[in-house]
């Protein structure tokens, strides 16, 4: 089943093509990461899907949970959770107060206590949001996104400002939402986040979808040749580039009589290598365009 489908999605601001013809289907129940540098068009794309921005008139087709997001209604909003890229304006309330109030708008909300626990705000639940750190405020945003028990959850750069532990906790939360069947669309410019969480990744830059695959398969990474390297007794490093790294490692193991092979490494192109080479042309174009 498709949760989101878009064809020739376009959004132009004056001369600027913020989204320049994206075709994409996002499946029900998957975690889909939209990866791209700043200014790539992530927020614009997601906010069109959320019903906050109008795509270019007469162009393309979009369906989110079977409905055109340009005409959002209550029943549709009831099925969707949204964590915007930036939020503020909650300073004078406590997490519990705003969660309790927001829950009332939904037909089958989660319990406020469950959400507070899920986002790890037990200790701050009754303190004014003004006194919370950036990462803690972000957890409030995530809590507000999931309080309505959405079928489809959008998160726009959810972990910006999180410390490493908070990021791990957040990943756990997202995985548990997936286990409950929630479809999750998140934008990020953290590669490790996309790699750790996503079933599929779409890389966008300059408003175009450049690649669409699993994190492991992105840019032909799975089938790419690997580099096996190790050190001999004299401490000299040897490297072999091969399409069959397992065979190479077995050969080395046999050579060492089952003892540890010193300094053994098997390296495939990292997601970062693939990503940087994908977006590189667009980063150049962007700088030239603005200078």
């Amino acid at each position: 089943m498709t949760a989101i489908s878009m064809r020739r999605l376009r959004k132009t601001y004056g001369e600027k093509k913020a989204v320049d013809g994206i075709d994409l289907d996002i499946e029900t129940g998957e975690i889909f990461a939209i990866l791209g540098p700043n200014g790539a068009g992530k927020t614009t794309t997601v906010e069109i899907l959320e019903g906050f921005r109008a795509r270019d008139k007469g162009q393309g087709e979009v369906a989110v949970l079977g409905q055109d997001p340009a005409r959002p209604d209550r029943a549709w909003r009831n099925r969707i959770g949204i964590v915007l890229q930036t939020t503020s304006g909650l300073d004078l309330l406590t997490p519990r107060e705003i969660l309790t109030s927001t829950a009332k708008a939904y037909s089958t909300p989660r319990s406020v206590d469950d959400v507070i626990t899920a986002v790890g705000l037990e200790e701050k639940a009754d303190q004014r949001i003004a006194g919370l750190s950036g990462g803690q405020r972000r957890r409030v945003d995530v809590g507000l996104g999931i309080i309505g028990r959405p079928e489809l959850l959008f998160l726009d750069e959810p972990t910006t400002g999180f410390d490493p532990q908070a990021r791990r906790d957040f990943w756990e939360l997202i995985r548990s939402l997936k286990d409950e069947g929630t479809t999750i669309v998140l934008t990020t410019h953290y590669l490790d986040e996309a790699e750790a969480l996503a079933d599929r990744v779409g890389v966008i830059a300059a408003g175009r979808l450049l690649a669409l695959d699993t994190p492991a398969g992105l840019g032909g990474r799975e089938s790419a040749e690997a580099v096996v390297s190790w050190e001999d007794e004299a401490g000299t490093r040897h490297t072999v580039t091969t399409a069959t790294p397992t065979a190479e490692v077995s050969r080395l193991a046999a050579l060492h009589d089952g003892r540890e092979v010193p300094g053994l490494q098997v390296i495939r192109p990292s997601l970062e290598d693939v990503y940087l080479s994908l977006i590189a042309p667009h980063i150049v174009a962007e700088t030239e365009a603005s200078s």
Partner: peptide, 21 residues
Amino acid sequence: ATERDDGTLKRLRSTPMPPAA
């Protein structure tokens, strides 16, 4: 004016709360 700028209105619109509320 403040709530429009700080995104409070947008956040409320993201929920099924009817605007009249």
